[in-house]
Amino acid sequence: MNADQLVSSQQRKRILITGAAGFLGSHLCDRFIKEDFHVVAMDNLITGDLQNISHLFHLENFEFYHNDVSKFVHVPGKIDYILHFASPASPIDYLKIPIQTLKVGSLGTHNLLGLAKAKGARMLIASTSEVYGDPSVNPQPEEYWGNVNPVGPRGVYDEAKRFQEAMTMAYHTFHGLETRIVRIFNTYGPRMRLNDGRVLPAFIGQALRGEDLTVFGDGTQTRSFCYVDDLIEGIYRLLFSDYAQPVNIGNPEEITMMDFAEEIIRLTGTTQKIICKELPTDDPKQRRPDITKARALLGWEPKVNRAEGLKITYEYFRSLPAALLEQTEHKNFVHYNK
Rank of each mutant, 00 (worst) to 15 (best):
L6A: 14
S8G: 04
S8H: 07
R14I: 13
L16C: 08
A20K: 01
A20C: 01
G25H: 03
H27Y: 08
F37K: 09
V39D: 02
V40F: 01
A41C: 01
D49F: 08
D49K: 14
H58L: 09
F62D: 06
F64C: 04
V75L: 10
V75M: 05
G77H: 07
D80T: 08
D80N: 12
I82W: 05
I82R: 03
P88R: 01
Y94S: 07
L95W: 11
I97D: 05
Q100C: 00
L102N: 00
K103Y: 07
H110I: 11
L112H: 12
G120H: 07
M123R: 04
S129I: 07
V137S: 07
E142T: 15
E143P: 02
Y144M: 10
N149T: 06
R154H: 14
R154I: 08
G155V: 10
E159C: 13
E159W: 05
R162E: 07
F163W: 10
Q164A: 15
M167T: 02
H172T: 05
H175V: 06
N186Y: 10
T187F: 02
G189K: 10
G189S: 11
M192H: 02
L194N: 04
N195D: 15
R198G: 07
R198H: 12
A202H: 07
Q206I: 06
L208S: 04
E211V: 08
D212L: 12
T214C: 10
T220S: 15
T222P: 11
F225E: 00
L231D: 05
I235S: 11
F240G: 09
D242L: 09
E254A: 12
L267F: 12
T270V: 14
T271P: 01
Q272E: 12
L298A: 06
E301F: 08
N305W: 10
R306E: 04
R306L: 15
T313H: 02
Y314E: 04
Y316D: 00
Y316I: 00
F317M: 06
L320W: 03
L324G: 04
E326R: 14
Q327F: 07
T328R: 14
E329V: 06
N332I: 06
F333K: 07
N337Y: 05
K338A: 14
